[in-house]
Design a protein around this nucleic acid. Sequence first.
DNA 1: ATTCATGCAAACGGTTTGCACGCAT
DNA 2: ATGCGTGCAAACCGTTTGCATGAAT
Lengths: 153, 153
Amino acid sequence: MKEGKDETGLQGTKDYKDLLKKENLRNTKHRNSILEVIEGNGQPITAEAVFLKLKEQGVEISLSTVYRVLEALVSKGIVLKSILADDNKALFEINRMEHRHHLLCVKCRNMISVDGCPLDDYEKALTEKLGFDIKGHKLEIYGYCRDCRQEEK
Amino acid sequence: MKEGKDETGLQGTKDYKDLLKKENLRNTKHRNSILEVIEGNGQPITAEAVFLKLKEQGVEISLSTVYRVLEALVSKGIVLKSILADDNKALFEINRMEHRHHLLCVKCRNMISVDGCPLDDYEKALTEKLGFDIKGHKLEIYGYCRDCRQEEK
DNA sequence: ATTCATGCAAACGGTTTGCACGCAT
DNA sequence: ATGCGTGCAAACCGTTTGCATGAAT
């Protein structure tokens, strides 16, 4: 699988026309730019940061459009939204097919992505035990990253 | 309306004087009331809901005091704060010693608490692999509860 | 031609803060 | 007596929304 469309339709240099079309969203410059920024960004990013990155690139767009586009993408499941407890700005990231979690350093506030997930069995057990039909989860792990850990000592 | 304060069943005899003292927080009526509400509540609760519960009980308090007290308790680790992605109100719960997670029903928005945690081994592995010193985590599991699951079908 | 997307500015809502007073220590 | 705790109202700030214009289908 290379340049073809995969399940997500999310490809580096490719544009997002098909993806948007599939979700009944019109193919606009802004939506493409926003998807590019979000996908290109290694970690969850705020709406304002998206806005600023676009500005840097010379893309003129209003902040409210960023919000509206993000909301649309989230509602289609293309983008995931989350909020950390100690900072009430929302973070957005591409909904990659590989399941992924993040380690958040409480000091430098960097995020490290980790593929894979240890929760499958656990969820299965919960479903059986409680009759709860699990659709997903959000796992946020926090602590000190390798660098800040040194400094702490 | 009668109140059964001794029915928290969780702390029983102990009031919060010692706890507050230990953290260099003055022992005030409001702080005790708030701790009572939060601990008595089975699940995470918003600041406003705390405020309203207190009002019901005839406790006169201002919303900003509720926020300030909660903030103090969170900063001391007595209370945990979290924010769900689709609702930007903060939720507060007692930091119980037994590790506990919640299942959130995306339909009726009820929360079910589950004791225990499947992540210990996983975190140990991450620490070794990435040199990340893990201090804690937040796990939010969502889906349909037993009741809403029926209705979906 | 129609419908959806966007910009602008104003509104919104949960949360925070400045200030003066009250209460715990 | 001191300094933290509280009430009130206003400020704050991320986010949403109404309306008119512009672009995609």
